[in-house]
Nucleic acid binder design. Structure first.
Length: 706
DNA sequence: GTAGGGTTAG
């Protein structure tokens, strides 16, 4: 203390005050202070880095009555806001009852910066009611708030005020309008504002490109970027980040990278991170990885982006490998990374990894806790453990619409429609269901064959909850009716749709036609699908299967030829199984597993065993144009069967076998699995692209509507 | 004192 005082004495008076406050305010010292000099007041306020030091300054301002000065107090309010203390800021603001627009702006900005968007909009309304004229600073703040909460109605009113008070040509205001309309999905209006701006700057271009990116109009975004370059404007990092979000082909990505290098932005870390994401989106995960490796000082976003890229690309083992590396290098984890890790585990259907992530999450509190907990519930669902999902859900401190829908859809995909409906009713008591919640419950009804209940849910959507059914909901209903064999009803339903049926709707009908073998309707659905969803191999395969199951071999060949002509390639099927913390992958006819010989010997024995109890191979599930005997051989080596046999060989006899197929489980494998569960007395859980199948004692939970 | 940007649960 002695030394401090000596040092302080050597300084000139204003500086002395400053230092004094910092030594003592930070140390929570109560004894304060000589009155503050007016000429140091603002600089004192602005240098406060903690709430406590600011409070000390505030106290001494009170002593010297400087708080009565509007200008000083406005600065004080701004500093409280920037330190996140909006309650203090607002109390001070309220005492003034001033009409000063600067003061109001500071307050509105404070709310926006602290994420309290509605408060800032409310304050703006109050300001208008009091007749205080907003200025060119007011609009950017309040427009940002409108954009962040997507309140376009409010935004339009503010836009009206912008015109009323003559700020349409202000470039800051214009840019804010572009951004607001972009966030509110009013792209055309954004563009209108952009085109009408008397003056544009780099931010105008950047905002417009960003608006295209956010609304999925990627081509327009990229072409506006070229236009900008054509005008001779030098891009900065924000423009680059925005345009990178628009790029989805490798060539475009390469072009952008050249521009990045030309402008010396290639060592900017956020640009490097964005480049990673861009290449991953273009399907060039290898290049993304090279970018990642090239980043010298990786930050959390770098790690999160790469892990998420792997998870998205279903390269989940790579994602987890990277996560392990990351834990070894830096201790700090955040919720975003964990969300990606959970996605990776979910792809792998890895129960062991789920337990591990669960441990990490409960060890400490993360921001966005509810999101983490919800995705953990989803993870347990996807690992086949409804019990754990439910347990965790019941323990949650706080639940929202997302957590409820996650669990509801969980029961649905596990075929427990009744429980899903029960939960949905419980949820409705406290939360208004949204369109996703309805989707969860409708699909639960569909998987569980609950037709009456499904209709009731669908009808209640707009009637009781003002949720307008979207194409997905219609698709779900078609699925519900179709699975139940009510194909005509499904067709009527499609005809009565207020909007044009999309690929999802026709796909649901085609799927139903597969179950109930209706060639005529399948052809109608396929006709639309081959236009609307021409690149989706699953559609061709389904129709071809329908033909061959109906004995129309020539037609089946024709579909396969069409597929080939259009260059649509079948997605290779694979099945994974996790045993003792390791994930094993099988493709059809796989020979890469060390136990290959054993697996095939055992498989042959198993096929013979189940044949004895009634299994008949369903050769319609082989697409290849080969002899019958060959077909059967091809069926027998499907990845599902290999994985199950591998599981039987390597797990305890009393344990559950869990496998995951990347596509829909093949019909013949479905039948075979039923028989296998019977002869081995094992429970087998199969997760496929749509749902779960629980096989037990020769039956499947899905009631054979796979 | 103002506007644009990289990872984020169903």
């Amino acid at each position: 203390m002695q030394i401090c005082v000596k040092k302080l004495a050597a300084l000139n008076p204003p500086h002395r005050q400053l230092r004094f406050i910092f030594y003592h305010a930070e140390a929570q010292t109560k004894f304060l202070l000589q009155p503050i000099e007016p000429d140091t007041c603002v600089s004192l306020i602005k240098q406060c880095r903690t709430f406590r030091s600011l409070q000390s300054v505030h106290t001494s301002m009170l002593k010297s009555h400087l708080h009565l000065n509007l200008f000083f107090s406005t600065n004080l309010i701004a500093q409280y806001a920037s330190l996140g203390s909006m309650s203090h800021a607002y109390t001070l603001f309220s005492t003034f009852q001033s009409n000063d627009v600067f003061l109001w702006n500071v307050m509105i900005q404070g709310f926006v910066d602290n994420g309290l968007y509605y408060r800032s909009m409310l304050l703006y309304s109050q300001m208008r009611e009091l007749g205080i004229q907003p200025d060119n600073f007011t609009f950017p703040f309040v427009l940002k708030a409108c954009g962040c909460v997507k309140d376009v109605k409010f935004g339009v009113i503010v836009h009206g005020n912008v015109m009323e008070f003559g700020y349409v040509s202000d470039v800051y205001v214009g840019n804010s309008l572009i951004s607001m309309y972009g966030k509110c999905e009013r792209l055309d209006t954004s563009r209108l504002v952009f085109d009408k701006m008397p003056q544009k700057n780099i931010v105008s271009w950047s905002s417009m490109i960003g608006a295209y990116a956010q609304n999925g109009h990627y081509k327009e975004g990229v072409s506006l970027f070229s236009e900008m370059l054509g005008e001779g404007i030098t891009p900065n990092r924000a423009v680059i980040l925005n345009v990178m979000a628009c790029v989805n082909t490798g060539n475009e990505a390469d072009d952008i990278c050249r521009v990045v290098i030309d402008n010396g932005l290639d060592f900017d870390r956020s640009v490097q991170n964005a480049a990673m994401v861009m290449y991953a989106r273009c399907g060039r995960i290898d290049i993304a990885r090279r970018f990642f490796d090239g980043i010298l000082e990786k930050d959390l976003v770098s790690w999160a982006s790469m892990i998420e890229a792997y998870a998205q690309a279903d390269l989940s083992l790579e994602a987890l490998k990277l996560f392990k590396q990351m834990i070894l290098q830096i201790i700090l984890l955040d919720s975003v990374i964990l969300l990606s890790v959970i996605r990776a585990c979910s792809n792998l259907a890895s129960f062991q990894h789920a337990r591990c992530v669960h441990g990490i999450i409960t060890r400490r509190f993360y921001k966005n806790q509810i999101a983490l907990e919800t995705s953990l519930i989803d993870l347990y669902v996807k690992c086949g453990s409804l019990v754990y999902a439910r347990k965790y859900f019941d323990k949650m401190q706080e639940r929202n619409i997302v957590s409820w829908s996650t669990l509801i859809s969980g029961y649905g995909i596990h075929g427990n429609g009744r429980e899903a409906l029960y939960l949905f009713d419980q949820m409705k008591a406290s939360i208004k269901p949204d369109h996703v919640a309805f989707l969860s419950v409708l699909s639960a009804c569909s998987h569980g064959g609950l037709i009456v209940e499904g209709w009731e849910c669908f009808n209640s959507m707009s009637r009781d909850f003002q949720v307008t059914p979207r194409p997905e909901h219609y698709a779900c209903m078609v699925d519900l009716l179709g699975r139940a064999g009510r194909l005509n009803e499904a067709c009527d339903f499609i005809e009565r749709m207020p909007t044009r049926p999309d690929a999802g709707v026709w796909g649901a009908l085609l799927g139903a036609c597969r179950i109930h073998l209706n060639v005529e309707l399948a052809e109608v659905a396929a006709k639309y699908l081959f236009e609307l969803d021409a690149g989706n191999p699953g559609r061709y395969v389904l129709l071809s299967n329908i033909y061959s199951s109906s004995g129309k071999r020539n037609d089946a060949d024709r579909v396969r030829a069409l597929m080939k002509r259009r260059g649509v390639r079948k997605i290779a099927g694979h099945t994974i199984i996790e045993i003792e913390n390791k994930v094993y992958t099988f493709v059809a006819g796989d020979q890469s597993n060390p136990q290959t010989n054993l697996i095939y010997t055992e498989l042959e024995k198993m096929i013979n065993r189940i044949r004895e109890v009634g299994y008949v191979p369903d050769l319609n599930f082989v697409l290849h144009d080969v002899e019958e005997e060959m077909k059967e051989k091809m069926l027998n080596v499907h990845s599902e069967k290999l994985a199950i046999v591998f599981g039987l060989l390597n797990t305890r006899p009393d344990s559950v076998i869990r496998i995951k197929k990347n596509l829909r489980v093949c019909g013949d494998c479905h039948t075979a699995t039923k028989f296998i569960s019977k002869v081995t007395e094992r429970e087998i859980i199969v997760r496929d692209a749509h749902r779960f199948h629980h096989f037990k004692e020769g039956a499947c939970s899905c009631g054979d509507y796979w």
